[in-house]
């Protein structure tokens, strides 16, 4: 493998690998902060409308499957754990650890999305999807003094689908990149000294986990209770 020694991973515009990795790390953090702003706009919308229409938001939140979301929270936290194990494998040069960690993360991601798909299906059957013809307010007790109540319930459901949908899109993208990492890791592309892609995708995956950590109580657990 004389070729590998000739083509050093060090790009010519960096002094050394440490500087190069620092720049890559900072680039990823810059991207993640812009992601915070994307989701932040949705969280801000949620905060405004929840403060305006608390009764409708609590009633709608109570209709969601909190126990399924709890299982999904555990699944996603576990996928973050397998991700750090994969990164650890790359750091200590254990390829089996790295590849198996990445594969486990993908598998848990698939499980999460499968459960989410099932949940969307239940939402459809319950008439919770805020599309004309699909939405049915029959399960809600509408206060007589609030004729707009069901409209506010629909507003909650719009936020629910946009927020969880955007989160799911991020997971699908992440799982695609994880698959690419598995492919490269199997070919021995990563060494303990140089595996920036593994570290950066790890950061992305944990960020997606953090978004869900906030979506979980806001959408599922902050209703009026049982």
């Amino acid at each position: 493998m004389s070729h590998a020694t000739i083509s050093s991973p060090l790009a010519h515009h960096f002094d050394d690998l440490e500087q190069q990795h620092g720049a890559a790390n900072l680039g990823m953090w810059t991207f993640l902060v812009t992601e915070v702003m994307i989701f932040g706009g949705l969280f801000a919308s949620y905060a405004v409308y929840r403060s305006l229409f608390p009764e409708a938001f609590e009633a709608a939140s109570d209709k969601l499957l909190w126990w399924l979301a709890t299982i999904n929270t555990v699944v996603l936290l576990s996928s973050s754990f397998t991700m750090v194990l994969a990164v650890h494998g790359a750091q200590v040069g254990n390829r089996k650890f790295l590849v198996n960690g990445l594969l486990a993360t993908i598998a848990l991601g698939i499980l999460f999305l499968g459960l989410k798909f099932y949940e969307y299906q239940v939402d459809y059957l319950e008439g919770l999807i805020p599309i004309p013809g699909w939405f049915s307010g029959e399960h809600f007790h509408v206060p007589p003094d609030d004729p707009l109540f069901l409209g506010h319930v629909r507003l909650f459901m719009v936020l629910y689908f946009v927020m969880t949908g955007l989160h799911a899109v991020h997971m699908i993208i992440g799982m695609g990149i994880l698959g690419w990492l598995v492919f490269k890791a199997r070919r021995g592309a990563y060494t303990p000294e140089h595996h920036p892609q593994v570290e950066l995708v790890g950061l992305y995956w944990h960020f997606v986990d953090v978004v869900w950590i906030f979506l979980f109580p806001l959408l599922y657990l902050s209703g009026g209770g049982l």
Binding site: P132, F135, S136, G137, P147, L148, L150, G151, H152, L155
Partner: peptide, 8 residues
């Protein structure tokens, strides 16, 4: 002003 009546 920011909400409209629901028509189903």
């Amino acid at each position: 002003t920011i909400t409209r009546p629901v028509t189903r």
